[in-house]
Simulated assay, not measured.
Amino acid sequence: MTRERASLSRELPQSVLRTGTDARLLAEVIARGRVTRAELATATGISKPTVSESVRRLVEAALLDATGPAETGRRGRVGTFYELGTAAGWVLAVVLDQSGVRARSADLAGVIRHEHTRPPGKPGDSAAVVSGLRAVVQHAQEAIGPERGPLRAVAVSVANPVAPGSREVVALPGSPFPEGLVSPAEVLAAVTGAPVLVDNDVNLAALAEHRSGGAAGADSFAYLHIGAGLGVGLYLGDRLVRGAHGLAGEIGYLPGAGADTLAGELSAAGFGRNDVDAVLNLLSANESTARSRAIGTLSAGIARAVASVTAVVDPGLVLLGGPVGTHPALLEPVRAAVAARSPAPVRLDHGVLGALAPAHGALHLALEHATAAAVRAAG
């Protein structure tokens, strides 16, 4: 142990050190699938006695299972292997938007165990959103059953802004999803005691691209969603920027050309909430005047949004996301339009997770919260 690490060990409370060790070893087991204590010590550099104590705590907390002795691959050596506990618990990721309610259940390794979908109600029908949200959580709990342990977190992606402190959905004029102005935590209080984590769909899509998508390894990038609504998820210095009221990235409210806002301009041109499928069909059609006009209008609007973001924060990467933003017909025209407007070169590409990005982000959020809380409880 270096002097710096030894000094740090003396300064930190033992409970903090135990939690850090447990979290690291649990992550290592999840990554490897099945491993011995000796292999954990070798892989992490943590002493064998410390590894043994940590594994004991994790087994007692049902986070790990001892799967019995087996050959280690070294002559004459037999070791006990450990893997993620079958009753370690699970998480639920829910996406709430104009297309309905979609839920994914996963174990703490992120392996999907169950999926369920509820169709949308009529536009403006908040009661349908509430009943759909409760139904998917109840259905998931019944489908998973008690043998996999407790439901440790529910993460809900909402197609509306979310206040950073309270995690309440924020009402804005002209919202493309007004029926989604509900409180998921209050709605689900009657059906689960698990923590309910709520965030904006664009922020969660950016989180997913940052963790395992097109922005992996980037410490500054912008994720631009173009679909029924417009929004930007912005990472600076490896941290998501939310703003004081959760409204950072609401680019639909940027000034438009000949309209009050950019969103209003695009909606007036036929690219609003109820036009997404028609726009996608138009972009995929054979060459036509209408298709060329649509590409030109969309590219110009998207380029103004990108230029505004890059002029203020200068991210190292801009990803286009959402059902319209990821259409292949738009990438090169947007690149050309941005190059004509931006004072500096802009690295611009598509996100790689497509329409499932918010679902992936909600799952990342739920897993990170659940494993951290489970390890703290084990210590």
Rank of each mutant, 00 (worst) to 15 (best):
T310R: 00
T310G: 00
A311R: 13
A311P: 07
A311K: 15
V312P: 01
V312G: 04
V313F: 03
D314M: 03
D314F: 02
D314N: 13
P315I: 01
G316E: 14
G316A: 12
L317W: 13
L317I: 13
V318S: 00
V318C: 02
L319Y: 02
L319T: 02
L320H: 01
L320N: 00
L320Q: 01
G321W: 01
G321V: 04
G322S: 09
G322H: 03
P323N: 13
P323V: 05
P323I: 10
P323K: 07
P323R: 08
P323Q: 12
V324E: 02
V324W: 01
V324N: 02
G325Q: 02
G325R: 00
G325I: 00
G325V: 01
T326F: 05
T326P: 05
T326W: 04
H327I: 10
P328G: 13
P328E: 10
A329E: 10
L330H: 01
L330T: 03
L330A: 04
L330G: 03
L331Q: 12
L331T: 14
E332T: 15
E332W: 07
E332H: 06
P333Y: 08
V334M: 05
R335I: 09
R335V: 15
R335C: 09
A336V: 08
A336I: 05
A337Q: 06
A337I: 02
V338C: 02
A339W: 06
A339M: 14
A339T: 08
A340S: 09
R341T: 09
R341Y: 08
R341H: 07
S342V: 11
S342P: 11
S342L: 04
A344T: 06
P345M: 14
P345L: 08
V346H: 04
V346M: 09
V346P: 05
R347M: 14
R347C: 10
R347I: 11
R347Y: 12
R347G: 07
L348G: 01
L348S: 03
L348A: 04
L348F: 04
L348Q: 03
D349T: 12
D349R: 15
H350V: 13
G351K: 05
G351A: 09
G351R: 03
L353Q: 12
L353S: 13
L353H: 12
G354I: 12
A355T: 14
A355R: 12
A355Q: 12
L356D: 09
A357Q: 15
